[in-house]
């Protein structure tokens, strides 16, 4: 992880919906190759902030740069340099694995020859060579999630946003998924991830915890536990949420 190179910078970011303040003066940096955990209770404003950083929504005020591009003016460039995966939408269930890869390659302008090469490597790494022509809908959830993640970083984005990527899978599959996250991070891809599993928060390099639109805490899991004199992240989370209620 390179502490010197910020790939996301957020300064005084505010997003209001009418009188409701969804994001209240957010300030943070995320560095290259970092695994950044973005935690918070339901309705704390995580999704809103994530949408802004992905260029899907404009903030009310404040500044933010993603992959070096301004999120107001250069949303197209932002979108080219990020990958996105959520539990709800990942891949087209009625297309095959290869067709999904071809489609998303097309979206990001990857040339067919590059695609073939990368596709082969991807399927080999995941051990899914035999499933190349299977419909996504017919695959087990764990495979789908791995594929969805691999497709999300297929175009080598600078940052990949993961919105609760591991919901609903068994503990082993969940951990295998994190292996992929670590690998991506080793390759220099920044991983921005939300989760409700508090043990997963421990796997992150740094964690931010949101509450009522504000970032209440941001540090390494280690420091957060010291700061809140807690045994684990679960306790940290509960303490922060209780304090601010």
């Amino acid at each position: 992880m390179n502490q010197q190179v910020p790939v996301i910078t957020v300064r005084n970011l505010v997003k209001k919906f009418g009188s409701f303040v969804a994001n209240d003066h957010l300030n943070f940096d995320v560095y290259q190759g970092e695994i950044f955990g973005f935690l918070g209770a339901n309705g704390a404003g995580k999704t809103t902030a994530m949408k802004i950083l992905c260029g899907l929504s404009s903030p009310t005020s404040g500044e933010a740069k993603v992959a070096g591009f301004d999120i107001y003016k250069e949303t197209e460039k932002v979108k080219r340099n990020i990958g996105y995966m959520s539990q709800k939408f990942s891949l087209y269930e009625d297309l095959t694995v290869a067709e999904n890869i071809r489609f998303f390659s097309g979206v990001y302008g990857i040339s067919p020859s590059d695609r073939k090469e990368k596709q082969q490597k991807l399927l080999k790494d995941l051990g899914l060579e035999s499933a190349k022509d299977s419909l996504i809908g017919s695959l087990p959830l764990g495979w789908k999630q791995k594929l969805a993640f691999s497709v999300a970083i297929f175009h080598d984005p600078k940052i990949v946003f993961l919105d609760e990527p591991t919901g609903g899978v068994d503990p082993i599959t969940r951990r295998k998924f994190w292996d992929l996250i670590y690998e991506a991070s080793d390759r220099g891809i920044t991983v921005f991830v939300t989760t409700h599993y508090m043990d997963e928060a421990e796997y992150c390099n740094r964690v931010s915890i949101m509450n009522a639109g504000r970032i209440e805490a941001l540090d390494t899991p280690e420091n957060l536990k010291k700061q809140y004199s807690a045994k684990n992240m679960d306790e940290v989370f509960l303490k922060i949420a209780r304090n601010t209620e």
Binding site: G40, A41, N42, A44, E164, G167, G168, H196, M198, D234, F237, L238, A241, R242
Partner: peptide, 10 residues
């Protein structure tokens, strides 16, 4: 409790 944050789950 699926998809619910840690506080609400507790």
């Amino acid at each position: 409790t699926t998809g619910v944050d840690a506080v609400s789950r507790k």
